[in-house]
Design a binder for these strands. Structure first.
Lengths: 254, 254
DNA sequence: AATCGCGTTGCGTATCGTGCAACGATGTTA
DNA sequence: TAACATCGTTGCACGATACGCAACGCGATT
């Protein structure tokens, strides 16, 4: 009956509930959780009570909805890629953001999507960057393409799923072949672009962060409002992000 | 039979397992988890398989132990105090660390202990600061005392538990009365000390970060090797941490 | 007042998690 | 090389336990 053999229904349900909490949506009521998951109210109540007793969630004042608990934060802080990269990439990204005036993001693969580990916001009035802990599709983001470019075409097909790929904006590449062609370019240049393919009006350039053995571990990007960056500046940003990624890679290896 | 009525055994067990993963100890094998929790191997195997399917944990290469998964990171990133304070306190702490040359930490209450939200390491060869996501006792840390000082004596008694309080070093205050007396001073001065009470050779001074309504939300500390800081410098550090905490508080309120 | 939506709780049923034992794989010791 | 220890996984039968229903108390809204 279960999704997969050898798994525990009650725990799988609890994980589904807990997984709904995210930086984008950190607050849920019992009723909302029940509607979203299709579980019965009573089940949700008991699940949440159990997870609250363990400190993974907290209920705000009195019964009025649940939020993320300190224990969940503590466990999440043990995520390897984050622990390693935060120390090294953080200062480099900060300087990059200050010098260029645009937001910078760092992401790593996380199954069928990738996750933002670290984000430095720009001081622009318009915020264009994603938030730490958010997941995104590979195919419609600069960091995602950098990560895909580390894989063979077959693996890419497996990862992004069947056509058409989800269309985020009119500019999103929704077919596999053009995406693979683009990835070939990325392998050559080491740079991936995002030209309003995820959000209208937002562009980005990304470069690769490698570990010692050449294993690709992360992508670093500069994100900006498209109308503020002309071709000349884009060329500068490409150089900047390439240098920063190389610096982080070098510091990672030793 | 269960710990508390209205909770689900299987989920409580899963939380107990997941809660073992922390920044200090981010890797566990099935056998280790089984020994630690007293659960049967087969139970642990199925629990972990279920949580792995949900992305909350990952098994390294093949079967060789589990680590924290990206989903756990994403959920943890939704922890309110972290999301709010990171943006505002981060830059202030960075400057404080650079200017004074010592590590700075920021912590918030998390049930019967407190948790470090943000840590900036010094460039000293000796690392003395805790890591993000680690839990500590209130009574043996500067930040902990600052947080306790926001409570009434009765609440403090409830929170720290019965005497003797856990002794971390020979200097730890293990009796309630002296602790309460110290907290009275903290309420007056707004500053808490830690003189090698948590780790031998490590001292700290902490100040209070308040929210708009006067609600205490966090403690900010400067942490240093005791033998490197004389009384004159300590006085300077107290001023520095007080100013920084006040600045963060002010930015929080608007 | 009346109605709606919410979160919680008792209870009986049968589903589903549990623990045992056995297996294959890997690594360690003699 | 062989015997042994340790590990992670899986089938299986039993019964503990999670489930879903229904009812309740509460607060907000009409």
């Amino acid at each position: 009956m279960g999704e997969r053999a050898g798994t525990i229904q009650a725990v799988a349900r609890a994980m589904r509930l807990l997984g709904l909490f995210s930086p984008q949506r950190p607050d849920w009521s019992v009723a909302e959780l029940a509607r979203e998951t299709g579980l019965h109210k009573s089940v949700v109540t008991r699940m949440m009570a159990t997870m609250a007793a363990a400190g993974f969630v907290v209920q705000d004042p009195v019964g009025r909805g649940y939020g993320v608990g300190p224990r969940a934060f503590a466990v999440g802080a043990g995520y390897r890629p984050h622990a390693v990269l935060t120390q090294i990439a953080g200062p480099v990204m900060r300087e990059l953001t200050e010098r260029r005036g645009h937001a910078t993001s760092l992401g790593v693969p996380a199954g069928e999507r990738f996750v933002y580990l670290l984000v430095h916001e720009s001081r622009h009035p318009v915020r264009v960057a994603a938030g730490t802990g958010e997941f995104r599709d590979y195919h419609a983001n600069a960091i995602g393409k950098v990560l895909l470019a580390a894989l063979a075409d077959d693996e890419v097909r497996l990862l992004v799923g069947p056509e058409p790929l989800p269309e985020r904006t009119p500019a999103t590449v929704t077919a596999i072949e053009p995406l693979l062609a683009e990835l070939a370019d990325v392998r050559g240049s080491g740079i991936a672009h995002n030209r309003q393919e995820a959000v209208v009006g937002v562009g980005a350039v990304a470069a690769t962060i490698d570990e010692g053995g050449g294993r690709r571990v992360a992508g670093l990007s500069i994100v900006y409002p498209s109308h503020l960056v002309d071709e000349a500046e884009e060329a500068e940003l490409i150089e900047a992000v390439r240098d920063a990624a190389a610096l982080i890679s070098a510091r990672l290896s030793r």
